[in-house]
Write a protein that binds this DNA or RNA. Structure first.
Lengths: 235, 235
DNA sequence: AGTTAAGGTCAATGGTGTTGGCATAAGACC
DNA sequence: GGTCTTATGCCAACACCATTGACCTTAACT
């Protein structure tokens, strides 16, 4: 193999590129995340990333095993950012709400990475830390182990699932996204009331609500049911 | 514009390709779904689809507005399959549960297509039919328009979001999927109880529950909250 | 039978990820 | 400080990709 990826710790020679930048895994991941954020997921390509870094595209392959590897590294970084600076308050429902919105938000800030990352179990430190924290909140609130695991599962998967779903539109080209959003007004608002009475009756509400994420509502509904189950069990 | 897409109904001339196939929107979508199922989502390209159909890639642009349009059509087909043969019972909670599981299941049957499709608004007939049906169930149950739309939004997005999330692992190679699943036993079950008391206490439950979809549980929690809100409003 | 244009094909454009070979300078060693 | 090794960046090339415009054939309507 002519090109083997060298682990970051083992790098010794830091040779600047022709344009003067000194590369590192960290710099590359951060630049990639910034590009995705600023120019949409279509804006990220080996060539453009190389150009942004002032380096030849092929140089990236000295740091990551292809664009997939780079994307996974971006996902790792996102988990870290979601948890950074978070501290529990002791009120379980508030804590779960805040944590959920943080995770959802961190992924949404980088849709491209979110799409490729959310359904993988990495087993890496920061993912484990998040799981431990959530289970701790639930068990601390008084849920039995069985209930805690059941709710934890629904909670974490729902958070990731909505992150991926909501990331979808953001990962599209501006054009495709605009046309999707507009569809609620251009198509749904014009359906004949005879054939589609329910859509017609709620067209205005739909058009204003659908382009936004349903995650907060779904999260609240989940927490509501959990709280009630806790109360019922306590009786 | 040299190439305008002609709507399926308006097509009159059915000229066979050089290799003898007679194209149609239906045939193309079905072939695309089959390709995605057999070769993964990366296996779908205009060139390969053209080859599979025995037609020049550019011919596809007479039927769809680019690959994006084809993707939307695939999503529409999946929704249609979910709805086919379904009939409401009149018990709203049962109906929503059954419909949700159907949609979830239809997408999971084509994991790679689900990943491409779930976050798109197609505005095509069968998607509209599904939306009309769901809104009808909710409004028929007695929910006010505002509540109906809020719950509809959370409900449909939750179904699609879990479909996409659960499709992720299925879209992986058998190898990668097995290693992801095994990670609950190989990594999580072996964490030191001192550092990770909550994971350690529930390791067995986690390993048995996590590899399965959380959708049914999450759906039930959503329906539970909805029912309670309906009861509260009725007082 | 003649006309029209739908619906095929071909060729070209400018993008993509990725790889093998090469050159050069960074750091180790004497 | 001089020399050597090799890590790391660069270049050129490959095989794909979506998409478009020009062209041609022939089915279907008059």
């Amino acid at each position: 193999m002519a090109k083997a990826v060298v682990p970051e710790e083992a790098r010794r020679r830091r040779r600047p590129t022709r344009q003067g930048t000194v590369l590192s895994e960290k710099l590359i991941v951060e630049t990639a995340l910034r590009m995705v954020r600023e120019h949409g997921s279509a804006g990220l390509s080996a060539r453009r990333l190389g150009a942004a870094l002032g380096a030849d595209p092929s140089t990236l392959y000295r740091y990551f095993e292809g664009m997939d590897g780079l994307t996974l590294a971006m996902g790792e970084e996102l988990i870290g950012r979601a948890l950074a600076g978070w501290a529990p308050t002791g009120r379980w429902r508030d804590d779960l709400r805040a944590l959920g919105l943080r995770i959802h938000g961190a992924y949404l800030a980088h849709p491209q990475a979110a799409l490729l990352t959310t359904s993988r179990v990495t087993g890496r430190p920061r993912e484990i830390a998040a799981d431990e924290a959530i289970l701790g909140i639930l068990r601390g609130a008084g849920f039995g182990d069985e209930d805690a695991v059941r709710i934890y599962h629904a909670y974490i998967d729902q958070s990731l699932a909505f992150a991926a779903l909501d990331a979808g539109p953001l990962a599209l080209t501006d054009e495709a996204r605009a046309s999707d959003e507009e569809r609620w007004e251009s198509t749904y608002a014009r359906l004949p009331a005879d054939d589609y009475p329910n859509i017609a009756a709620t067209a205005g509400l739909l058009a204003s609500r659908m382009p936004h994420s349903a995650y907060p509502v779904a999260l609240e509904m989940l927490l509501e049911t959990a709280e009630r189950q806790l109360a019922d069990a306590g009786d």
